[in-house]
Write a protein that binds this DNA or RNA. Sequence first.
RNA 1: GCGCUAGUAGCUCAGCUGGCUAGAGCACACCCCUGAUAAGGGUGAGGUCGAAGGUUCGAGUCCUUUCUGGCGCACCA
Length: 978
Amino acid sequence: MSDAQQQAAGSGGQPSAEKNRYKDSLNLPKTGFAMKANLIQAEPQSLRRWEDARVFNRIQHVREQAEPFVFHDGPPYANGPIHMGHMLNKVLKDFVVRGALMEGRRVRFVPGWDTHGLPIEHKVMTELHEKGKTAKLETLAPEQRHMAIRRECATAATKFIGLQAEQMKRLLTLADYADPYYTLMPAYEGKVLEVFADLVDQGVVVRALKPVHWSIANKTALAEAELEYEDRTDLSVYVDFEAADRAKVAAAFGLLAEAPADAGEGDAEGGGEVEAEVDESRILDMTPSFMIWTTTPWTLPANLAIAVHERSRYALVEIDGNTTVMASDLVAAVAKKAGSEKVVVRAECDGAKLVGLEYRHPFCERKGRIVGADYVTLEDGTGLVHTAPGHGADDYRTGLKEGLPAYCPVREDGTYDDTVPAWLRGKSIWDANKEVTERLRASGHLFHDHSFVHSYPHDWRSKTPVIFRATEQWFVGVDAPMKRDGKTLRARALEAITNEVGFTPEWGRNRLRGMLESRPDWCISRQRSWGLPIPAFKTKDGATFLTSASVRAIAKRFSEKGSDAWFQESPAELLSHYDASKDPAAPAGLDIASLVKLHDIFDVWFEAGSSWNAVLRARGIGYPSEIYLEGSDQHRGWFQLSLLPAIGATGHAPFKRLVTHGFIVDKNGHKMSKSIGNTIDVEALLKEFGADVCRWWVAGVDYENDIRSDSEFFKVAGESYRKVRNTIRYLLSNLEGFDASETDSILSGIAPTSLEAWVLAQVASTQEAVRRAIAACSFREAQQAIFTLCNETLSSVYCAATKDRLYCDAPRSSRRRAAQAAMHRAADSLCRMLAPFLPHTADEAFRALMRDETACVHLEHFHTLVHACDARWSEVLALRELAHAALEKAKERGIENPLDAGIALPVSHHHLAEFAADLPDLFGVSRVILAQDQSAIEVIDLREEPRCERSWRRDGTVRVRSDGGMLSDRDAEAVGVA
RNA sequence: GCGCUAGUAGCUCAGCUGGCUAGAGCACACCCCUGAUAAGGGUGAGGUCGAAGGUUCGAGUCCUUUCUGGCGCACCA
């Protein structure tokens, strides 16, 4: 205590022992709402209470007639415990759900899980492999093997769903956990097939060839995850493909430009022929070749094109007596490798000039052509890339672009079919490597060959090398016109995202557009066990049987029996709901008994992408969803692959708005990974901070971008949470004995110039801002508004200002009760604003406010608040800033305690005289006077004036009272002494 | 490599269509209070706006290049 204070206290004339003589007469704060949240223990109790009180069901019941808010959950993949990304996503979704509930809407949010797919199957297979059970699997018939694997997968998926659901509940998310959706549910599977049937109806489902990783040993397709890369030595060959027209090559390299001809380059097609005959003898004395390089000579029979990079430079080279074309930058390297002596570059041009030229296949009777591709690099080879669309991913894409078929002359056992030259038919491709090479050498097309060691994919189980092989697959064609309106899926999808869908953030629109514009047809078939079978059959004569009616019949069967039926039932049983006579698309003379089931399954994205039908429409929740809210990776995933089936089946997008969030990265902005060890464990986080603090952190995050995260950040969120909690606690602690039913009548009588009018106007505008922000998914904005209300409006200004009247006024004084009424309303509104973000804390506070342990804020909704205050309040607040500044300055004079000071206002502020009664409280000083003789705010030193023993103020009315104490008028009256 | 996206005080972020000495919260420092007390209040110090060019009377804000992150380009969800 400073000397000045001691003096001041002393001047009151009371010994310090009796300093608290009047403390018992004060109305000090009192509440059962604890300062310490103890979330780790208390939240599970809240969960139990909500469960016991059947809160979820009551909410549904109470809102039965309310306007629905359709919101659909994207299914996470059930293959492990939840991570930070799940927490972020689920909590953000919960803000949407609870925000809509607070608006009085009816929300039935059904949590879902994606259960099929490779990750689970692969995990299960790996475990079976480790337990030595795969050998036994091999002995089973194919359908029994599929079933054995499927049973294991279903068990694994169900286990993880249970785990994840518990963790999501622990995050205090509100959802229909009693009745969730899983993609493996029979009813769900049936609804997916219905979407598929709709697409068949629209004519966009097609069967076509596409190269996949193929294990010859197991005669099966493999996924990337099932590949092991090992070094392998292959024969690498440089092959000359003879140009079909030497004059056009010469023209491409500009060698004809010098010719004294009247035909310009512009009409090359017509005039070039004549000219070429004149010039070719003069300039090119032999037909040039295009030199390619490959490590898989066995794919050469399937060569249909040669790819060049349009922006690379290519050279026409004379090398060892041949004239050939290769990338300029690689001439030296190739010459060195082949040990060539004489190398002359005749001319150079851009790759773009070569595009369109034709060449003769060295041993197949056909021509190929040069095409452009941006994946061509100048790191290896010749800069001209051998392209076999049936044997490579890049090649395939190029083939699609160029209209080339995915020609694959290799059968499933790794031997050539009958479309190749006779000397290769029936031969194994591995033997063909050498044969092809020798053939090329003999015919003079082989420029050079050598052994080449490279990393090559192998089948993880048989350890044999894998090949790329085109097989028949099912596709959803994005460029096929739909029956509905003749528009393509791509065109309609682009229209929808351009005109009918909102994006948060807005750049998502652009991103999705880019993906839709460039995406190829969607390959929806997979050659695996764990998934929804594509219900196609093979007929006796080898044709594929699948019509929309047959698909619908099987959809019905699956929804009764589950998709396991595909592996357990005969075609006749599966098609028991099918009547070929009523199916115009049925092939003539269909003999169901002789059908053979095919065993492709759906891409899991097709299942997840049909959830709008399998959940929203099937359960009568509503359609479309107001929002789909997922990580930004889902532009490629769920967003796009829900859009396509929905556009196909219904003509419209399944969502009105796409909201995306970024990824959680570590505090240095790097991605989290288990191997780096910078991950944060959600369970540990919940154990240390509790769900409400974690949710408060999520609420404050700028989720549109990457989100840095570190356990330190949760401490900060905890601090902020505590500030909010304490503010509510303080409001509650002043409501002891207050009759809430008086609130309305008290508040209807307050003056616009009163502190209450001001604070309630602030509460009302904050609540409006919060509601707007939640509706816009701007949760951070909502959180900041709430925090500012607590930290500034309430804690720093209103509560500080009303402290004196609440503590020292008579309990039933009108001033005190007005403050209590305002605090009650503020606390009530705060609970509602906080309900979406802090479900536990808001509910805890709400029960304390209602003094009713059975009350639940989550059954409530926002009340519209209409509170206005005098427009001059902004001036008053500005004046408060000035007063604070003056007080700070007065500290130099030794006036350190504001209660030792008064404030004198100059004439320029006298128009605020109506507020004068509240100004001392607002400034925190003992009194405020209106001065006539000064131009600025001045601080009056009141240290010599007597101090009220009860309120500690020096308001000018302090004197000795009948009980011997020094009291101000107000305090004397409150205590009841004269 | 390509598409999308971000880089503003120690930390998390505002800064709309370019315009007064670049703002907020937290943290920090100093002070007050001790009747919200493992609380509360006041004041203050922090930034060449990733870097380099350019357009302009004027740029954090527009353009170009560049550096550093993130997401996506797979039978991974």
